[in-house]
């Protein structure tokens, strides 16, 4: 693996992508796929940040407190996220569009608040049980869990994504994959076709949660400290941007989108205080000119035509109501 990685990093480093940046790009790629799955089944869910938090905290506690190896903690974090996704998904997935988005954002916010107050809640429960004041410190609220061992290595992430890509290709060709696509087209029609819509939607939601959990475990073992603030509303919106900027027509899109959006602030470091302005500008311009995302051949060819037309100085077509 190093034989590939070292030359790759030698190319990337001059433009500002050092190994940690590459690692965050790969972790975010997993998150991109996580939200892509739900979007691909027609669900506008923003729960990935919340499940990422669950994965991160469970994984960190397993390696730090219980000395589990990374692979075991990874499975633990993914399982925890998946298990919690069941009771969340069952009632929530009846909602659609923006209502689902807000409900899932709400889930993330509740997770964040629970992490912030977990120790206090546990302490007061223990105090009531034992009848004397008990102090309890495990997940440390806003202080964050510190000193998490840096067990994640770049090849873990690359391997994970390769396996994920293989599974996704298989998924899309399977009955289940076709059922997902059918639900996205029209839920009622899909149900009439004999697809168990509730089952498919919940399964996809769980799969998405499991992937977000995995990203959380990997991420916690890169950043060395996890705080609830890192998994809030901002993160949920960032993850959505990964998928949409990349394009949601194939699973490659969210991966590309995540990597581009993660690398951008680092690559733009030379701009100093104008970095943030450019970041916003690039996001805006890309989405306006390529509404289908970066990985969307039709969008590029349309853009190419427009550019060609602009060169021949023909006036832009008159616009009516869209």
């Amino acid at each position: 693996m190093d034989a590939v990685l070292t030359p790759l990093l030698d190319i990337l480093r001059p433009i500002g992508i050092t190994e940690p940046v590459l690692q965050f790009m790969l972790v975010n790629a997993i998150l991109g796929v996580s939200i892509y799955l739900t979007l691909h089944a027609g669900m506008f869910s923003l729960a990935s940040a919340g499940f990422m938090a669950i994965g991160a905290y469970v994984g960190a506690l397993l390696t730090q407190q219980s000395d589990w190896p990374l692979w075991a903690a990874l499975l633990g974090g993914m399982a925890a996220a998946g298990v919690i996704a069941v009771p969340i998904g069952l009632p929530t997935l009846r909602l659609r569009d923006i209502y689902l988005a807000i409900a899932t954002i709400g889930f993330g916010e509740v997770v964040r608040v629970l992490i912030l107050n977990f120790d206090d809640i546990a302490a007061s429960v223990l105090t009531t049980l034992q009848g004397e004041r008990v102090r309890f410190r495990l997940i440390e609220g806003a202080r964050g869990i510190k000193g998490i061992p840096t067990l994640t290595e770049t090849w873990h992430l690359i391997l994970f994504l390769i396996v994920l890509g293989y599974l996704l290709t298989r998924l899309h060709r399977s009955r289940f994959g076709r059922a997902m696509a059918a639900i996205r087209q029209d839920e009622t029609v899909a149900a009439n076709m004999g697809i168990n819509v509730v089952y498919v939607k919940n399964m996809v939601f769980i799969l998405s949660a499991v992937l977000a959990g995995a990203a959380g475990v990997f991420s916690a073992h890169l950043t060395r400290i996890i705080t609830p603030a890192a998994f809030g509303f901002d993160k949920a919106v960032d993850i959505l941007a990964f998928a949409v900027l990349g394009g949601t027509s194939t699973w490659i899109g969210p991966i590309v989108g995540a990597m581009v959006l993660t690398a951008m602030p680092e690559v733009l470091r030379f701009l100093k205080e104008f970095r943030g302005v450019f970041n916003g500008l690039v996001l805006l311009v890309v989405i306006v000119y390529l509404p289908g995302g970066l990985v969307n051949p039709a969008g590029w060819s349309r853009l190419w035509q427009r550019l060609g037309r602009a060169q021949t100085a023909s006036p832009s077509p008159s616009t009516g109501v869209d």
Partner: peptide, 22 residues
């Protein structure tokens, strides 16, 4: 040589790596 971390753990790691290693 100033680098911005934006209050974010990931950006802080990236900035530190850039300064120390690059």
């Amino acid at each position: 040589m100033f680098e911005d971390s934006a209050g974010d753990a990931e950006q802080a790691i990236a900035a530190m790596t850039k300064l120390v290693e690059e």
